[in-house]
Simulated scan of single mutants.
Amino acid sequence: MSYSYGKWTKYQIMKDNPILVGYLPKTVILSRGNFWELIEENEAVVIKPSGGSQGYGVVQITKIGEDSYEIHSDRNKMICGKNGIEEFLDKEKYGRKLYLVQQKIPLATIEQCPFDIRVMVEKEVDSIEWKVTGKLAKVAKNGYFITNIAKAILTLEQALEDSSIKDIDIQLLNTEIDNIALLTAYELGEYYQSSRIIGLDIGLTNNGDFYIIEANLKPSRGMFKKLKQ
């Protein structure tokens, strides 16, 4: 049996669950029409390859005026009008691969740098029971909007203490994240039956709301070793 491991397939699986859909940023296949509709709704979107990893090819576009947009890639920023965006969307790479455009989650920050949460969920061989085995926070380097290039790896508790989020019940948040992570693992596990480990990237807002940015079926454990150090 052939499986698709792209972000789009995993998003569709999660979206079909009536509980998980409320934790997903709106995501659609990139096209001119879909892009303009989503950026008008949200003012900021992220474009990413469905089959990408480690943040490769991820771009953020923000509407900053009536005909003014900021394109943010790595540390590079460029301001242009609608015509400039149209030219950007017409680049050849977007015609060769499947790209997605996703509602940008306004991530909470630590010292003005956005951070997100990596949640590891695992199950043993021949077991049907998933367990949350680890959580940590990844803080983006100065000038970056994604955390794949992290300047700090923190415990979730330390990140929340240092963050722009105020008046949050950490224990309640931990429980909700665990419940949603387990539900996600069971849903994805029904399709990817050979997978025994899933890494979820979860974005937190200043209000304490959280969203599943994406799910990884081959997550690295290396960052957890950095946390122990």
Results as ranks from 00 to 15, higher is better:
S2I: 14
Q229Y: 03
S50H: 06
R32V: 03
E41F: 00
A150E: 12
G65K: 03
F35R: 09
K218L: 12
N76P: 00
T9R: 14
L20Q: 09
G189R: 11
K141C: 06
L217R: 04
R96N: 09
S53L: 05
M1Q: 10
K225R: 13
L98Q: 12
M1T: 08
E41L: 13
E187N: 13
L89V: 04
K218A: 12
C80I: 02
Y191R: 10
V132S: 07
V119M: 08
G57W: 13
I197A: 13
M78Y: 09
T27N: 05
P25E: 12
V28Q: 14
G203T: 07
S194E: 12
N148F: 07
E129H: 13
S163V: 08
A150C: 07
L38Y: 02
L136S: 00
I180S: 08
H72E: 02
I61M: 10
E92I: 14
R221D: 03
G203Q: 06
P18M: 10
S195V: 15
I198S: 00
Q12W: 00
S2H: 10
L217Q: 05
L200A: 03
L188M: 13
N34Q: 08
M1H: 11
F35M: 08
E111D: 15
Y56Q: 13
A152S: 15
N142D: 12
L200G: 00
G65I: 07
Y3G: 01
F224I: 10
N17E: 10
E157Q: 11
W36C: 08
G65N: 04
Y56W: 09
A137K: 04
A150Q: 11
I39M: 03
E176G: 01
C113P: 05
F145G: 05
D90N: 15
Y5I: 09
V101T: 06
T147S: 12
L136N: 05
D201P: 08
I165W: 11
F210I: 01
E111R: 14
R118Y: 06
I71Q: 06
I47R: 06
Q171D: 14
Y56K: 15
A152K: 15
R196L: 10
T133M: 07
I146K: 14
A152L: 05
Y94P: 03
G22C: 09
E157K: 13
Y99S: 02
T109C: 09
L173T: 08
Q171A: 10
S163F: 03
L38V: 12
V46R: 09
Q102N: 06
G134R: 04
Y211H: 13
K97Y: 12
L156A: 02
S163D: 04
E70A: 05
A137Y: 05
L100D: 08
C113N: 15
G6P: 00
Q103A: 01
D169N: 15
V121M: 01
Y144D: 07
K228N: 05
F210E: 06
M78K: 13
R221E: 02
T175D: 11
D167H: 11
M223W: 01
E40C: 05
E124N: 10
L100E: 09
S31A: 08
I146S: 05
L217T: 09
N216D: 14
N206M: 04
I71G: 07
N174I: 00
G65F: 04
E214H: 05
I71D: 07
K104C: 11
V125T: 08
N17S: 14
Y191E: 11
V46I: 14
D167G: 06
V139P: 01
I105S: 02
E129Q: 12
L156R: 01
K82W: 00
I153Q: 02
Q103W: 09
I177E: 07
T109M: 07
K226R: 15
